[in-house]
Design a protein around this nucleic acid. Structure first.
Lengths: 233, 233
DNA sequence: TTAAAAAACTGCATTATTTCACCTTTCGAT
DNA sequence: ATCGAAAGGTGAAATAATGCAGTTTTTTAA
């Protein structure tokens, strides 16, 4: 994450953020944003934004998978949501410019571009359609977590784990078979239960033929039945 | 909720929404908004916005207490948040103009004013500072629910109920003693547990002298110890 | 390559939570 | 004023979830 000699890892030409931005704002304005941007790479496990810190930049995540993490007063972690690129990260502070409420961490190797919040805000305030678009981007990340919370709030662990498996398959890995980016501990922090409970439950689903678990490799053999478990709670 | 003969229950002169709006937009523009508004009263229990419906208006809640309610596929309810006036209700749809994700119901008698979404959006798009202010209003309602979710996600029932008691005391009733607007069933839907568990736990806190429960009347005798229970989980 | 550390896993005792069956109180409508 | 429905409440059995103590497997770094 060295910034001494700003490195260029990828080309801006095919950047989605650029494409979308340039539908709303002038190329010259985008160039201003870009001149303040730095390309960064994060290894799996690295912290991108730290809870409690004041962040001066967003990150346009171009590649990779991240988690939003909240650490409570006892040091217990909760994963609020998991998102994959492309996404605009750090937006909880656009409307409400305070300290980061959550951390954002890479759970797979990531690359992206910092975006200066002050400058983006200035540009967006002069262009409501662009502002609107940015807000959509930001709330996307947020909204996905709502249904996870609902699942958490009134399903038991079986249903919650079924929900997470379906979510990962459909929204993150886009495949019935995937290699889990989360440790069992992290899975538990996402499901709001103990890691033992995650292990027991995955094993049970495995023994019932519902899924195949082999270390980090998971295959959903019967998504329909998983849906039923999710629904039943 | 008769709209045949639009009734005037209260005076617009001292309306907070008007005061705030007029800091950003012209009086004439506010008059346009107002001309499309209707003053409404809701009895405790009435539905203000219905989950799944397409809402053409926000409600500026001028007086009263409301709940955000999500009903799942099995008919189970979850209360996402509880808010008191003043608040701008229905904003989940401003950025993302779809159907209502949640219902909003009065849990105390309420009064407020409808606000035409299309017109408000049009005005806000022409005035970014106003748009920003409206977004702040809307996300306020949202943000308060986040910490309730965190509580839900990794505390046990004792801690969750302690959290809710503290929340109600500090954020809704602004007093250590209050008359609960929720039934035990609703309390359970907020705490994400069974109503029996709510009753048992309130009784336990009562027996320990932590709180005094007498039907709907609740007094927090020892908020500090309650905080400790909340913290310990 | 190997030793140490971290993560995955297991079964079980303990604790938390739900569910059920049933009783009592409160409240609103006739 | 009375009936019936809804809400509040109780205790106990059944179920779910956690936390522990220990083993195995995988990963990491020297």
């Amino acid at each position: 994450m060295s910034q001494i000699n700003p490195q260029r890892y990828f080309d801006c030409e095919d950047c989605l953020f650029r494409t979308i931005s340039c539908q709303y704002i002038q190329k010259e304005e985008f160039e201003k944003l870009r001149s303040k941007s730095v390309q960064l790479r994060y290894k799996k496990g690295e912290v991108i934004l730290k809870q409690g810190a004041k962040s001066t930049h967003f990150l346009f995540l171009r590649k990779g998978i991240i988690k939003f993490n909240y650490e409570d007063e006892n040091g217990k972690n909760l994963i609020l949501s998991i998102n994959k690129a492309p996404a605009l990260i750090g937006g909880a502070n656009l409307v409400n410019a305070e300290f980061n409420l959550f951390s954002v961490c890479a759970i797979e190797d990531c690359e992206g571009c910092t975006i200066d919040v002050a400058l983006l805000t200035r540009i967006a305030l002069g262009n409501t359609l662009y502002l609107f678009k940015m807000l959509q981007f930001i709330t996307d990340v947020f909204r996905s977590s709502i249904f996870n919370f609902i699942s958490l709030a009134h399903k038991q662990v079986n249903g919650r784990i079924a929900d997470i498996l379906i979510f990962l398959s459909q929204n993150i890995y886009m495949n019935d078979a995937f290699v889990l980016s989360l440790s069992r501990q992290e899975f538990a922090e996402f499901a709001g239960c103990s890691k033992e409970n995650v292990i027991h439950t995955l094993r049970k689903f495995h023994n019932e033929g519902l899924i195949t678990v082999e270390g980090k490799k998971i295959i959903l053999n019967d998504p329909e039945r998983l849906q039923k478990i999710s629904k039943h709670g």
